[in-house]
Design a protein around this nucleic acid. Structure first.
Lengths: 233, 233
DNA sequence: AAACCATAAATTGTCAACAATTGTGGTTAC
DNA sequence: GTAACCACAATTGTTGACAATTTATGGTTT
């Protein structure tokens, strides 16, 4: 465990300077791992006690998580953990396709050779992970997000990085946690990842974008079967 | 003036149920029109008095505007109005290209014939606006954002709508306000808009996306000349 | 029995005081 | 003369109490 999972850098790097930061991180974590069930009401007073703070910092945390779409709030009626349904995740994956496609395009132009080399090494690790996998699905998934996170970083576009890591990826993690054992397709995904890195290494932005969009589209086709909502094929 | 400008629907429709909502709207407005200069410090106590509230609601407003990237905050040191430089807006326009490209693609699939008809009418209004224009640049600009906003709506993707209207468009407005008289290219833009609507009307998602991306790329090429930062062509 | 209104409880919104942190200015030591 | 250090002022972070609003409850009426 030598590497932190991709996370909002603003929050994670600064060692939580303020109480509201800590509360926000913990609350976010508890939402993502499902400790606070989807759709459950967030009682300010109770949760503040749980996290050892007063209502003020907790309210700030709620506002931030609202910005990350992990919490839905209605005035005077309180906040609730977001409910992930088929419709919403479909929308998220469409946005992800657009943003990560652009991210791959830029990465093909902006990534340093060292970064690309590190990407290859990461894929090798993933391959070994598949070989001796006793079904370490969880690690598989985090590894997948790690790959996508690095490409976002490689775009060198702070806005893309921020949008993807602090909003979309959180929801995708949450989604994965709730559909606990999804039939991940490690071999197929790994091949697609290789093709993408290959396009980036060859400095082919158009191909990189195309492959990334197809990759995410495929991922969605796997995920969507496991979600509630409209269960039509 | 029969139509409100594109804005965050959550805030604008609900008539500002709470004081924090009103403060947020006013503060946002004051930032966008430049009443609070870029990079200026936001003193909580002073501004709270200006908006007739205490520090609590103002702090909530700051958190939300931080989420919209209109405010930058550092712990224990306070918040400042964002500073728009060349680098940042370049990143914004790249993200915009990705999101609005996808938006146009979806609009070609999802927009109703009535919506498309309304789009044509809007373009006609804009054409007349050019004819008798005594240089009503401001209206021209808002009209442009109105066009893009409607296409976002047409995508029927709540995430796209939200990201574009409540984050990107605010910054673009702010950017336009600070470069007060930019040589807008109404005729060229109008033609590009027509081509886009044509592609949407013909239900050609790929072409719609392509044209929208080119349109935004051209817009950036005009805007970037008027920004501070690295002034290399 | 079901719908409706009034009241009460619970919860969120707001405020003002208090604590913690940062930046600033001057002083002192080298 | 400069650099480090300490103290003070200004500003942000936090707290608990109070006000406004919503939701639940129970009784009344149709």
């Amino acid at each position: 465990m030598d590497k932190l999972p991709p996370d909002n850098p603003i929050v994670s790097l600064e060692t939580h300077r303020t109480l509201a930061d800590r509360v926000c991180s913990q609350l976010k974590h508890d939402i993502i791992i499902g400790k606070l069930p989807q759709g459950s009401k967030i009682l300010e007073e109770d949760l503040a006690k749980v996290y050892g703070s007063s209502r003020g910092p907790l309210r700030e945390a709620i506002r931030r998580l609202e910005g990350m779409r992990l919490v839905v709030r209605t005035p005077h009626a309180g906040a609730r953990v977001v409910t992930l349904n088929h419709t919403m995740m479909a929308e998220v994956y469409v946005v992800r396709e657009a943003l990560e496609g652009m991210s791959a395009r830029l990465a093909a132009q902006q990534m340093s050779t060292e970064e690309i080399e590190a990407l290859w090494e990461l894929l090798e690790q993933h391959e070994h992970g598949i070989d001796d996998a006793d079904g370490k699905v969880y690690f598989q998934r985090e590894g997948d997000l790690d790959f996508h996170y690095r490409i976002a970083i490689g775009s060198k576009n702070q806005w893309l990085i921020q949008l993807l890591s602090s909003e979309l990826y959180q929801l995708i993690r949450m989604c994965r946690h709730c559909s606990s054992r999804l039939p991940s397709r490690p071999t197929a995904a790994l091949n697609e990842h290789r093709q993408i890195v290959d396009a980036i290494a060859k400095r082919d932005p158009v191909l990189a974008e195309l492959l990334m969009r197809r990759h995410i589209s495929c991922a969605w086709n796997v995920v969507k079967e496991l979600l509630p909502g409209q269960t039509n094929g």
